[in-house]
């Protein structure tokens, strides 16, 4: 045994090193994805026997479920508006990219919201929006507006939650851009300045192309963040009012572990839809990374 290992060391070592990670990953990530696909073809309350129903779950989901439709729309809203974190983060990064005294502390404090858990962010914003004592209504009250019960209004609630989510996400994008701005080639900037470029033109033609790696990562983490949104919804509105703030991930959770009986198969079907939606983006991200790999080696 030992002498075999000695002879085949180079070939065997990587697998020995990979085994623990692979086992854990297969058991808790890869296999469950397949199981979700399988389970979505069954009707199951989580206790008794599962009953095979074919595509019935999907049929009901896609054709006859109003709540699913609302969740899909809300996911679309999350995707669209959450991306505002990228220009927002860039804007703050440009504002803070100076070398005055104490700027390091300012940068850290601007980044602060990202470090706090989304649960606390959710609580903070729930109180911020509160119609009786919230800061939000105190502010719009100054100009004679309100009071508005943001989270109690089915039309507004989702936007209110997305705004809360944008707070930490913008901070994240800001730090990505600050790091990126640090690495921008000063010679190119000087050369462009000599050519008379400045302001927006400089930003667009010289700076942004060099920030592309940062933009890519900001894009990846923001899309993933948008599709994973759950905590804020759970804490701020718990899906309400009247189910108007549900997204796919929340709806799936609600269906699978609802207090009115577990609908595991139906929940799995929702999960599969969410996964397929995500697959479009994952495919694109992986393709981009694969291109980099090929270029790099």
């Amino acid at each position: 045994m030992y002498s075999w290992y000695k002879r085949n060391q180079i070939a065997a070592t990587p697998w020995l090193f990979l085994i623990p990670a692979l086992i854990m990953f297969a058991m808790y990530v890869i296999y469950p994805i397949l199981q979700s696909f399988n389970l979505s073809l069954y009707k199951w309350d989580g206790l008794g026997d599962a009953e095979y129903v074919g595509l019935a779950n999907y049929e009901k989901l896609l054709l006859r479920d109003r709540a699913f439709e609302i969740s899909m729309w809300n996911n679309a809203k999350w995707l669209a508006f959450y991306l505002l974190a990228i220009p927002g983060g860039l804007f703050i990064a440009l504002f803070l990219n100076q070398t005055v005294r104490g700027i390091r502390l300012y940068k850290s404090l601007f980044f602060f919201p990202f470090v706090i858990s989304q649960i606390v962010v959710g609580l903070v914003f729930t109180w911020f929006y509160d119609p009786t004592f919230g800061l939000f209504n105190a502010i719009i009250g100054v100009v004679g507006l309100g009071p508005v019960n943001v989270l109690g209004d089915p039309q507004l609630a989702t936007y209110g939650i997305i705004a809360a989510g944008l707070w930490p996400q913008t901070a994240y994008c800001m730090i990505l851009y600050l790091t990126g701005l640090n690495a921008v080639d000063p010679e190119q900037i000087e050369a462009a300045r000599l050519d008379g470029a400045k302001g927006m033109r400089m930003l667009w033609h010289v700076i942004l192309p060099q920030l592309r790696p940062a933009t890519f990562i900001a894009f990846v983490v923001t899309i993933i963040g948008a599709l994973r949104s759950f905590d804020l919804i759970s804490i701020m509105t718990n899906g309400g009012p009247f189910g108007s703030t549900r997204v796919l991930s929340f709806y799936m959770f609600e269906k699978s572990l609802s207090e009115y009986g577990f609908k595991m198969g139906y929940g799995a079907a929702i999960a599969v839809v969410l996964f397929l939606l995500m697959l479009i983006f994952i495919g694109y991200f992986l393709w981009r990374m694969y291109q980099d790999e090929k270029g790099g080696h």
Binding site: I33, S36, R228, S249, M264, M278, L286, M289
Partner: peptide
């Protein structure tokens, strides 16, 4: 490279889809 991309892909997954199987496990 396939294993490497498997790890990356798994990391991008919206983890809620793992909920029911992981809870059962």
């Amino acid at each position: 490279l396939i294993l490497f991309f498997l790890f990356i892909a798994g990391n991008f997954v919206p983890f809620q889809i793992l909920m029911i199987p992981v809870r059962d496990l």
